[in-house]
Every structure is written in structure tokens, then in C-alpha cells.
Amino acid sequence: MKGAHHLPDLLAAGETRLCAEQIYPRLFDAILEQRLPPGTLLPEQALGQAFGVSRTVIRRVLGRLSDQQVVVQRPSHTAHLVAPDPHQARQVLSARRLAETTLITLAVERARPEQLKQLRQLVERERVHHEKGERCAAIRLGGEFHLKLAQVADNAPLSRFLNGLVPMTSLIIARYESPCCDHCAWQEHAALIEALERGDAQSALALMNEHLDRLEAKLRLD
């Protein structure tokens, strides 16, 4: 378990106070970039000082990350980052496939134009970060695409289940993806949106399975 006495600089120059919604993506990106390595302790006071906010704000952010299984919180213990091993990674990916193949079928039936527009906006942001070489931000936005897709499917229990798998998958990708791989999932996400727009359930399901196959093939879990 690594200490957090020397947290990286998490506050941009000139910034003062941030809200929990602004801190979450910055902390998540720091985790994906492994500026905060797996197993790192996350003391509320130290994080509060790093972001210039109260422990109450940090507690909300850590609570969200705990719900997504990226952070472990226990009573009377300092929160710390998870460190998924290859066996745990395979279990997460297997569970995610079961959820996503059901959700994509439901999404085809229930997608509304406004929701498709929101999905396209997410993919555009993902593309921009990818082309700028901002790999971890692109990975995080790719995860948000799948969570938004789950909302489109309009099945609350499955959506909550996926909410605990997608952020963990992002961490697994950041940790185990082969360095020779070019992570360009935004193109596959764009193809999924096109299938949703056509109402083509068969193509959408095939595309989702191919997308997850490619994701798993890029990981060095052996």
C-alpha cells in the first residue's frame, strides 16, 4: 500500500476552489495516468489540500469512486485505490459483456433523438482527446459513453451494475493495455450510434461484441 504524503499537483495554475463535479474527472484521470498508482492511500485532508477544498467535498468524490469500485473505503480506514490483478480483470470483463449485450439490445428499442445527440457529443469529445494524444481522458470519456448508453437502455438495475464495471474497466485498460496498441475506441462508438439510429439490433449487438473483443485483445493479462 503506497502512502500519499506527496500527492501530484492536481490543481491547475491560477485555480482556487473546485466543486466535486470538477474534481472527479481530474482525480480519475490522475488514477488512469498512474500518477496515483494502484494501492495508493487517499487521505481526505491531503486531497483537500491538493485541490484547495474541504474534506466534505473530497468525501463526496471518494464516495462516487467507491460506488464505482475504483476506491476502497472502510470505516476507520483511509481510503485507497484498488489494484486489480489479471484474474479480477477477467472477471470484470466477463461480467461487463453479459451486461452490455443485454443493454445494447434494449437501447436499440428505446433510444430517442436527444439521447443519440448526447452520445455523439461524448464521442466527439473522446475523438478530440484521442487526437491530442490525451489517452487517459479519452479512455475515461469512452467509459462515460457506455454508462450513457446504459441510461438509454432505461433499465435501472443493469445500469447500476454497469456503473460498477465500466470505471474499473477503464482502470484495467490504463494498467494492462499493450503500449503498442492505438486506443481509438471512439470510431467503434460512432458505429454503435449509427446502428442505434437505424434501429438495427442485430448489427448493434455484433458491433458491441466486436468492440469488447478488441478491448480484451489489447490487454496483457497473461
Score class of each variant (00 low, 15 high):
H5F: 14
R60Y: 05
T101Q: 07
S203K: 07
R90C: 10
P157I: 05
I104R: 05
L93M: 15
L98H: 03
G133A: 10
A111G: 04
Q68K: 12
D9Q: 15
V152A: 01
E131K: 12
E194N: 08
K117A: 10
E109K: 13
L171R: 12
L98D: 00
H129D: 13
T169P: 01
A204G: 07
V61S: 07
R127I: 06
N155V: 14
L41D: 10
Q69F: 12
K218Q: 07
A30H: 00
V108L: 10
P84E: 15
E114K: 08
A4C: 10
P75Q: 00
A95Y: 02
L119Y: 02
F51C: 03
F51V: 06
T40A: 00
L192V: 11
K132H: 14
H129W: 11
Q68I: 10
P25K: 12
Q73S: 09
R26L: 05
L219T: 06
A156L: 09
S203F: 01
A12V: 08
S94D: 14
A50T: 14
R17Q: 09
V152H: 00
P157D: 07
H6V: 14
H183L: 13
Q121V: 10
T101V: 12
G63I: 00
L196D: 01
Q88Y: 07
R214C: 01
G133Q: 05
L162V: 09
L221Q: 07
A13W: 08
V123I: 15
A185E: 10
D182N: 10
D222H: 03
D85L: 14
R198F: 00
A46F: 01
Q121D: 09
G14W: 09
A137C: 03
G133P: 01
E100P: 01
R140W: 00
Y176Q: 02
P38M: 15
Q115T: 01
G63W: 07
N163P: 02
P179G: 13
L32F: 04
D29L: 06
E126I: 12
V57P: 04
I193E: 09
L103G: 02
Q118H: 11
V57W: 01
E188V: 14
Q69P: 05
S203Q: 10
A107G: 06
R135G: 08
R59M: 07
V61T: 07
D200V: 06
P43M: 14
C184R: 15
L10T: 13
L65I: 08
